[in-house]
Write a protein that binds this DNA or RNA. Structure first.
Length: 213
DNA sequence: AGCCAGGCCAAGC
DNA sequence: GCTTGGCATGGC
């Protein structure tokens, strides 16, 4: 089932097709760890376009920093992140995150620690760890499950940790590949392997039909 | 004009 | 343990 070459082969094909994505996108003069973490929370089940607006609001109001986010009134925070949707819960999640992490040393921020924060699930935690802290956690998202189950490589209701382990076992332990691969998966999932897939323009098309078994 | 988006939590079996 | 409902905006 898991063919070692296949995961790398798919990576190469996507990279050749879309080029380096160089994730995670951040603005200048911000605390990157913080911006990535807030972005990861805001993008939960939400398009990045909407998240961008919310982040720009935070920057414009000069609150995209630890002190201001800790101080800011939750209702005020809701209005700023409104474009990202689910703003009632996300405002709480951001507050929870800032409170828990603000005075921690980065060495203390483990996956288990993040998962204990209400509002931080596995994907959000792994985004924070990988892109924010440069730790080797492969990020699994809905696109990853959709693409790799469609290709016949995993079952479509596979558990998060199980699929993550498959990537870990089949890829070099290379943080840059982890970062880039996930970004490429998102790009492919957004534009080609969509809910209604455009198989005619898919660079993985032949691999896809071969693998189904 | 629906459908969908870089999930997560809580409640109910 | 597994399934379901709720959350909300803006782009296509």
């Amino acid at each position: 089932m898991e063919n070692k070459n296949l995961f790398l082969e798919i990576y190469e094909k996507l990279l050749k097709e879309y080029g380096f994505q160089e994730w995670w996108p951040v603005h200048q003069n911000t605390d990157k760890f913080l911006e990535i973490s807030i972005g990861a929370i805001l993008t939960q089940n939400t398009s990045w376009k909407n998240v961008e607006k919310a982040i720009e609001n935070l920057i414009r109001e000069n609150v995209l920093n630890w002190n201001e986010l800790e101080k800011i009134d939750e209702e005020k925070l809701k209005t700023l992140i409104k474009p990202a949707g689910f703003f009632n819960q996300k405002a709480k999640y951001i507050k929870n995150f800032v409170k828990a992490v603000k005075n921690k040393d980065k060495s203390e921020i483990t996956r288990d620690f993040l998962l204990r924060i209400k509002g931080i699930g596995k994907e959000t935690a792994d985004c924070i760890l990988l892109y924010g802290l440069n730790k080797p956690y492969f990020v699994i998202d809905a696109y990853t499950k959709r693409i790799f189950s469609r290709m016949g490589m995993v079952k479509k209701d596979i558990e998060y940790d199980e699929l993550q382990l498959i990537f870990k076992k089949n890829l070099p332990q290379d943080i840059d590949i982890y970062k880039e691969y996930h970004a490429l998966i998102v790009e492919h999932g957004k534009n080609v392997c969509k809910k209604k897939p455009d198989c005619s323009v898919c660079v993985l098309q032949h691999l896809c039909s071969k693998i189904i078994s």
